[in-house]
Nucleic acid binder design. Sequence first.
DNA 1: TATGAATGAGCTTTCATTCAT
DNA 2: GATGAATGAAAGCTCATTCAT
Lengths: 205, 205, 205, 205
Amino acid sequence: MTTEPPARKTRWQEKREASYAALVDAAMHCFHERGYAATRVEDIAEAAGYTTGAFYFHFKNKTACFQHVIAYRERLRGDWQTLIDGLDPSTTSLEEVLVRLFARFAEAERGAGAWILVMVDYHQQHRDKADAEALLHDSYRRWHGQIAEFIATLQQRGWIPEGRDPAQLAADVFAYSEGTSAHAALYDTDRGAALVDTVARLLRG
Amino acid sequence: MTTEPPARKTRWQEKREASYAALVDAAMHCFHERGYAATRVEDIAEAAGYTTGAFYFHFKNKTACFQHVIAYRERLRGDWQTLIDGLDPSTTSLEEVLVRLFARFAEAERGAGAWILVMVDYHQQHRDKADAEALLHDSYRRWHGQIAEFIATLQQRGWIPEGRDPAQLAADVFAYSEGTSAHAALYDTDRGAALVDTVARLLRG
Amino acid sequence: MTTEPPARKTRWQEKREASYAALVDAAMHCFHERGYAATRVEDIAEAAGYTTGAFYFHFKNKTACFQHVIAYRERLRGDWQTLIDGLDPSTTSLEEVLVRLFARFAEAERGAGAWILVMVDYHQQHRDKADAEALLHDSYRRWHGQIAEFIATLQQRGWIPEGRDPAQLAADVFAYSEGTSAHAALYDTDRGAALVDTVARLLRG
Amino acid sequence: MTTEPPARKTRWQEKREASYAALVDAAMHCFHERGYAATRVEDIAEAAGYTTGAFYFHFKNKTACFQHVIAYRERLRGDWQTLIDGLDPSTTSLEEVLVRLFARFAEAERGAGAWILVMVDYHQQHRDKADAEALLHDSYRRWHGQIAEFIATLQQRGWIPEGRDPAQLAADVFAYSEGTSAHAALYDTDRGAALVDTVARLLRG
DNA sequence: TATGAATGAGCTTTCATTCAT
DNA sequence: GATGAATGAAAGCTCATTCAT
């Protein structure tokens, strides 16, 4: 009988979540297109169809918004490590696995790739603000952890030789991948060409 | 008879060159410490012992100043490719060469390393300004060209197997190196550890 | 037969009055703690256990709310002039009367003393808005009138000499009292010390 | 021979001091007319004939500007305590002294009287900012100290009976005076009427 | 050459108020 | 009666750049 109050609350909740989602997504794309510093709060709000007031209803400030974007990206990434479930080295080469993987990431990023640039931009604006930087570290740790796990699986399942430390391989592959991303964006370099090939070389040792 | 005017002119020139040099060097260090966007013109002038007026006497604007810093860094780098003149694979391992190389670069940078961060920062502030970006491309081309040349020499002199395209190897090594730099700065990651080792692996194929 | 509608109406009225009372009281305390300008409408609503919407149901705007607080304070003050009913100069000294009086006011204020600060704050935000200021004048007139009446009684009942104009004495005592309040708040001065003593001197002439 | 550099420096200095003086004076008048909170930085700059940028060249922020205004007012006040040098109780009554004194203060304030209102306003905006408040305390201490000294002189020179503590008398007179100022401004009360008379009563005990 | 006061556009953030539900 | 998401108009402050000297 008293189902109305909860229903009402849900309405607000839905509305709130919808506008929040729109803002976070808009923020991600604005940051991607213009960089962190050059993106004005108003740009984000406008891109989401709201005003700056709405922005500050959802986020304490621009920094906080960025941190929500980081979390959003992790959610988008999903559990990509299951990508090789059911695959086998005898039928699917390492290169093929990598091609699928990068394709998956590209798709999950929804057009907002080369994110390393945004991370650098954010970092440059928050030098020596310990808590703002801590977020970056945590984010890296999670990413890196997932990659290392995945590499360990590749080793166990016979795609690549065992022996090398998965954590180190993960750091290498991650750094190389982001280095090429950055160079492609900064220097108009061709990233795709050798990416898979070189990553495969790194992994095989 | 009229030896004074030229002498005076020289004095002025010297003074001018001295202040120019001080400003460019100060700019490099400021950009390194705070990033491009966060560095104020006054910071640079002050660090060099001058005022903003002097800055604008030497540079059209902040962007132009950055471009002079880029050129300055190239000058600092010098002709590092001669580093292996007189060395031999039989007495000096590839790893040793790389260690010396990175040491040399570190020294030439005068404490202003992880420059990739600054490049990204600059890039983010100049999106879609064709001429500002062109500078970056040129700068990359020169760097990359030198590295490729050096790698070709390593191949010819027997440090690494021939066969792979030096240009591609250069791109890979460069990207990997800068990726680790960025990760070290952003995520408080340990760069030195595997750097030489992984670069050697990349080069050896 | 139709006893329900009136009952219901009463319920609503009660509810309405309860929330109104809560809001006015919360407003008084917020204004006291943070000043008029620095108090946000949301602060008041929150302190009363409601939301801004409820606030605007009861008050046209922040200014109107303040005016209700003024009226509330007058109600709280009550008919303090009866405080000396039954007392006599032969058994109760002027100083004793004053001590009781200030104690009574302090109690009625419910912790929200030094109200002069809030009045000034409100006044500063409403310069040249005639109607907003008129409220202050009326409020003063009532306060001052009550004090003058009380002083006249003190004269008639023999606590203080007759002769001086009660209205002027009231203005003096009021101004002195509020001056010390303000100084105590602004300059961390000790108010209590000489208050009663000096007021007594003023009254005795 | 080399008198030019100092001369040049003086030029800048003069210019700087002129604009500083204009800004401080404009700030005082704006604060007086609109209160502290309601005065925008742009109002001050504009009133002085400059832009907000110039304002921030001279003051770190609005708070700092206010503090300079406080110092300015102390300078304006000058050494008013010498006002009775050469006067004598036998030829000049206490009331006459007070009239001259208040006239002197009114003149020194250059139209920016009832400053207590601005002080309250400032105080309300800086609650619990220890350093901002410390300034108020210091300012009070100096004012109060001067008044106490002056009252001691009045006692020694025979204008008022000795016996009462000059510090306490100073606190009383100061509080009363500012209380009437505030009431006059807030409640459109007539201040001048009894001011001198009541202050004299307070001083005579 | 170099100074440094001044400009002015731009950005982040706050908050009284509204309104559909 | 009450909710709370959203608006929009400020306001404080920063900083690249200019210019008279």
